[in-house]
Design a protein around this nucleic acid. Structure first.
Lengths: 339, 339
DNA sequence: GCCGCATCTGGGAGCGCTCCCAGAACCCGC
DNA sequence: GCGGGTTCTGGGAGCGCTCCCAGATGCGGC
């Protein structure tokens, strides 16, 4: 009478208990790493688990327990642009690496225009224990909304409308600062920038770094054109800069992908790189090394980014107090040919 | 006594039943779209669900039912290379679009060298109903292994060691064929190719298309160099081709990213593009439009790819018979400047 | 009239865990 | 000696669903 339904394969916790000569409760304690288990029992249980090839049923743990044993990876703002970014690929790799070995599922969610509300409902409905939010637009309200519901979240990239939402980000400010210092050390005196849009923290922080670097040397911070992280807009921005200052001798471009467009315009106008104009990009994406000439750029460790993001969330979930609210990851200059 | 544990928020199925004036069973039937429910009950239940904002508990459904209500997205072979590929980003977008509205979770899994066995165990352990496998190397044994366990899977990209594993792929053969026909129609007579590696179906299929296109016109298929989908190896391959045939007048490159390297070599040697040498790439990635000169290439609809992949799996899961075993998606030529 | 079949419904067992509770065993200090 | 704690253990009541079963009802044909 007990063999009624079509069962999933594999042993149950009860069998482990029998083989180990203890109760279900004790097996459960061992699995969840609780204290108050004798060394003897712990060993017996581990042996039994290995012998039977036991693996706990996720649904049952979630249903019975107070955790969902899953976290969400929320890709905000239509997903398309985030995903097209090789940056994201590296982050995802890091996230996964950090998750390895833990019994935590990674759920993918994209923020489609339709289901904004549904998504918040789903996330706060107990289906996940926390969320990693990768948001491009700094003013996306989602991170804040989620955080206010009390759901533990960590945002990848500093949110502009963040309030006190924990985030992990690359040190964009210092990366840009280093780039400018390099250009100055090379003797450049008329240093422009192609910045990102106003509504993205990543763009604004790089712009601040550029400003600060110039200010250090009393140089003008007038040569700014905002652009939107596409090669085409990078090209347009470069044209605008050249119109305003045909004699500029360096450009700090806030993303490699825009630098590609800028490079094309400079070359078309007959500027030699780096002789006439030095160019520094940002990201050290694959585009940088394949560009002609290969691009000097600011490197960020995207895999580390993903690992840190995940680590921060999991630590919070496991009750770790005194965690840093937010974390900045170092960036470093990569010298190639363009500067 | 009934309010014992810390509960997740929201109403239970029992409350929906009470409000709708029917039994739990009937509510369950409505939710799962079973037949044998009167129109009257169905309406009442829908109304109650809307009123209460009810959403079924995933863990409970999974535990009680015979389905896991989740599918896995398995990124095979170290993940790094697949992910860095913008191709993958589009696929993922498609996958997600197709999943929208269904109560199916998307679990991310990466195939790390360590946990090959664990992964198979996890996937076949009833945690998911099926899997989408995105595999780069055609000879990866994972798709076949999984398929043999009986787990419904669909592979993105034709597997070489596939056996009868269902897959979805772009029509690489015809894409290459079209590319060659274009080159022929442009009067080119010495058409080389930079092919992908031997162990990837995507490379081999494009190579076959190139061969076939040349054979149609009785042209030589001798000018082949294999490469590995990086710009650097594309450059090396181009150098090799020029050594063997300095007078070639066209190259079909099996990926835009390799074409970038080839372009660089050709330009460095003083060949004019497309005047001296016409170049056609494959993928229509972002690289193609930003290349100098903009690359004529073969386009594949990556989002459609993801949608189709998912559709095929879900159809199988819902018991659809007479599904096509595998599906090829059309590719089309995009004319730009390089040919 | 009656038997069969299709349609619809509710009751309730059970999915495989976690976590509460009660209790056993042991140590400590007075 | 006894009360108090800490350490360890097993029993068992759920978690919120699905799905089997039994039963009620309606409708057709003989």
């Amino acid at each position: 009478m007990t063999e009624g339904r079509s069962r999933r394969p594999g042993p149950r916790i009860e069998e482990v208990a029998r083989v180990a000569g203890v109760s279900k409760s004790t097996v459960s304690r061992v699995i969840n790493g609780e204290k108050y288990v004798s060394e003897r029992s712990r060993l017996a249980v581990h042996r039994a688990i290995a012998m039977l090839g036991y693996s706990p049923n996720h649904a049952a743990r979630t249903l019975a327990g107070s955790r969902a044993n899953a976290i969400a990876l929320v890709i905000s703002e239509l997903g398309s642009r985030v995903l097209a970014d090789p940056f994201f690929a590296g982050v995802l790799r890091g996230v996964h690496a950090e998750l390895a070995g833990r019994h935590v599922q990674l759920l993918m969610m994209m923020n489609q225009p339709l289901d904004g509300e549904d998504q918040v409902a789903y996330l706060t409905g107990g289906h996940v224990d926390g969320a990693l939010v990768v948001s491009l637009h700094g003013e996306d309200p989602l991170p804040r909304t989620l955080h206010e519901t009390g759901l533990p979240i960590v945002v990848g990239g500093r949110p502009l409308a963040g309030g006190a939402v924990p985030f992990v980000d690359s040190d964009n400010f210092n990366g840009a600062l280093q780039a400018v210092r390099l250009l100055v050390s090379l003797g450049r005196t008329k240093i422009a920038t192609i910045a990102g849009p106003h509504d993205m923290a990543v763009g604004m922080d790089r712009l601040s770094g550029w400003r600060c670097g110039l200010a250090e040397h009393g140089m003008s911070v007038a040569l700014v054109v905002h652009s939107d992280f596409t090669p085409e807009s990078g090209a347009l921005a470069m044209e605008e800069l050249l119109r305003r200052a045909p004699d500029l001798d360096a450009v700090f471009v806030a993303a490699d992908i825009m630098a590609l467009g800028a490079l094309r315009v400079l070359q078309a106008r007959g500027y030699r790189i780096p002789d006439d104009v030095a160019v520094v990009g940002f990201d050290d994406s694959v585009l940088a090394s394949t560009a002609v000439p290969p691009l000097t750029t600011v490197r960020q460790d995207v895999e580390q980014f993903g690992r840190t993001l995940t680590w921060r969330l999991l630590s919070e979930l496991s009750g770790d107090e005194k965690l840093p609210q937010s974390i900045l990851l170092p960036t470093s200059l990569v010298r190639r040919t363009s500067a």
